[in-house]
Every structure is written in C-alpha cells, then in structure tokens.
Design a binder for these strands. Structure first.
Lengths: 187, 187
DNA sequence: TAATATAGTTTCGACTCGAAACTAAATAAA
DNA sequence: TTTATTTAGTTTCGAGTCGAAACTATATTA
C-alpha cells in the first residue's frame, strides 16, 4: 500500500463534491471554491473573518480570493463591512441567504449518506487520519494550520465559561472558542 | 463527530494538492484536472483509455474533457490515435514527457511525506475508509465505480498467469489485470 | 515627514466548466 | 438499402478560477 491510492481517492471524492456543489447552486452558478470560502467565513472568529483569512485558509493568492469574494457579495451570500479600528481591513459575514445555502450544501448529501454507512470506529479512524495528513502537509508547505480556540495554547480558562486569549489579551465567550482562528497554535 | 469534518479535511487537502500541482507544472501552466486526467490515462486499460473513459472517471461533461485533453495533447503530454475498428473512438496514451511529469507529481511530495508519518495500521484504516466513502458516493450519484480487472467479476483465471474477460471475451495479461476499467463490476 | 509594510482591488491571459449546437461514424429500423 | 437513431468527440459561448503583477489606500516605522 502506498500513498498513490490516498491521492487518487481524495481527488476523486473532491471531484464528486465539486459536481454536487454545482448542482446545488445551479441558479447562482455556485463554484466549489465559493462554497469553501462561504463555509470558512461562517466558521471563522473575529480575528480571522477577513479576505486575508480566507486567502490563508484556502492557500490561494489574495487577488484570486478578492474576485471570488466579489462574486459571493454580488450574489448576496456575504456582506463586507469596514473594520472600525483599521481602515485597511474588510470584515466578512454570511448573510441569511448564505446560511440557507450552506445548510443545504454542507455536508454534501451523498457524503452524509456514505458517512452513515461507516461504523463509529471507522469514522474516527478516517477523520483522524485525514487530520494528521492535512496537518503534516500544511507544515511541509509552510502554511498556517488554523484550528478552533478551544484547542489553542493561547486560550486560557479563567473560570467556568470564561476564556481569555493570551495573544490578543481579550475575553472569549464559550461560542468564540468553537470558531476557527488564523493564529491558532496547538497546545 | 459528524461528516462536516470529513468534508472539510478532504476539500482542504485537495486545495493543497492543487497548489502543489500548479507549482510542479508551472512552465506548462498545468492544472489539477489535467494531472488527474493524465494519471487516469496512464492507468486505464484498452477498454477505457478514451475521452469517454476520462469523462466518466472524472464526472465531468464530454465537452469540458475534450478541451482539457486538447491542451494535454498540445503540451505533448498525451497522444491521440484513431481506433482501428471504430472510427468514432479516439485512443489516448501518455507520452514519455507525460510519464516523466507524472512521476514527479504523483503522489504529491508533501502527501508522500505525511503518509510516511502514519503507522501501517492508520494508513490502512484511512485508505479503506476513503474507498468506502467514494464507493457509496458514486453509487448515490449513479456513477460507474471503476476498478482494476484483478477485482472484477468478469475476470476469470484460466490457468497460472492466464486471465480472461467474460464480458469482452478476450484474454488478459497479468499486467492488464492491474489497469483501471470502465466496465468494472466488483465480485 | 518620508519610507515601508499591510490589506485589498484591478487587470490580464490561460484554463475550467456546463450547456447546447455541431460533425462523423456505427447501428437499428423501415 | 436507404433512412432514422445512437454514440464518440469537437466547437462555441459565457461565467468563473487562478496566479502574476500593477495599483490604491491605510497603518506603522524610521
């Protein structure tokens, strides 16, 4: 057994996911990368919900991402708003229409079905394996790994349901700790 | 644990693979889908090495595939030749230049590295899980699953190293039985 | 106050993708 | 044996992806 099979299966599953995405969003001419960006925005925290965050997350250039975000905005799936403190920064948020679409498309219906056919042991092994592969690949490519605050070494628990980010010196709500962060450092 | 994580990890790994593909083939402006097609052609058997085979394998439309193959040909990575018996059919083969590129790009260096970090048990669990997910997703989407003759129910072993395809009524060499087939039916 | 760094946008050219119209060859039907 | 019909591919169109490079505007640093 070698890594070629892994490569092949991932690419083929991704192809299938792409086809399904296009079908779900036919009326909007929705592209796979648009859905990925939309999903990221919906799950990113207040330090990460920017074009720059999307760029790092997807590993694309800022120019490419800028175009994709422009289309998402013109389709009414996201909203751009200026940052109050820093005039260079644009804040991204998902609109109700965007959320509706997300719920329809992620996870893909056929993947959800396939997932259900696996027993719990195989589900865990699969996701854990992929997680490790992704992590190693990101490391090798010098990319930021992202992750939720709940698993970050900068996150300290002050008391019950009171969290604090040592990096930004700000308080975090329990909900905050479930969002993706650009600055995430595993413990 | 739910299937969202699976969806997310696969998409992100695929993004990374795409970036690496573009870097490896910068001079040719090589796109991820071109590499997938090239890889398929190099692994497909004599019933499957056609534009139609690529189309079914990648789950795209024939028009899209036709364009991608035209670029692969103009870059000297594949060769098109007419079928002797049926004038409608085009046979695809990978050129030496195509093979050279393939060996450089698949499996991706960073994935090979990540793969090496897993122990054998995790490797098997990962690949088996993905295989099952892919299979179920293809079934749900009414797609042909593909597979190598060695695992096909039409393949019967006449004697040592002598195989026979009951569907096409033709002899198969041992090497044939390791190639991908459009008509594959699991035993 | 000027130099530089950072966050985004715009433009360009090559490519992807589906849809639909098209060509040519093989098969089925009349 | 002509005349459909099916099958394998190609071509064209329009919207989108993508990197590269030039560009704008707002911080930050010197």
């Amino acid at each position: 057994m070698n890594s070629e099979l892994l490569h092949e299966y991932i690419e083929r599953i991704s192809c299938l996911l792409g086809s399904e995405t296009r079908v779900v969003g036919t009326d909007l001419n929705l592209q796979p990368v648009q859905l990925n960006a939309l999903n990221y925005i919906s799950r990113s925290n207040r330090y990460s919900n920017t074009p720059q965050g999307v760029t790092e997350y997807l590993g694309l250039t800022k120019g490419t991402v800028s175009q994709t975000l422009a289309i998402l905005e013109s389709n009414g799936l996201i909203k751009k708003s200026p940052d109050k403190r820093d005039g260079r920064i644009v804040r991204l948020s998902v609109t109700p229409a965007g959320n509706k679409l997300l719920r329809k498309a992620i996870p893909s219906p056929s993947m959800r079905n396939a997932w259900g056919e696996l027993d719990r042991r195989d589900q865990n092994a699969l996701v854990e394996g992929l997680k490790q592969v992704l992590f190693e690949m990101q490391k090798k490519n010098g990319m930021q790994a992202f992750g939720i605050c709940g698993t970050c070494r900068f996150n300290s628990k002050k008391e019950e349901k009171k969290f604090f980010c040592e990096l930004t010196q700000e308080n975090l709500s329990p909900k905050d700790t479930e969002l993706l962060c650009r600055e995430h450092q595993p413990t």
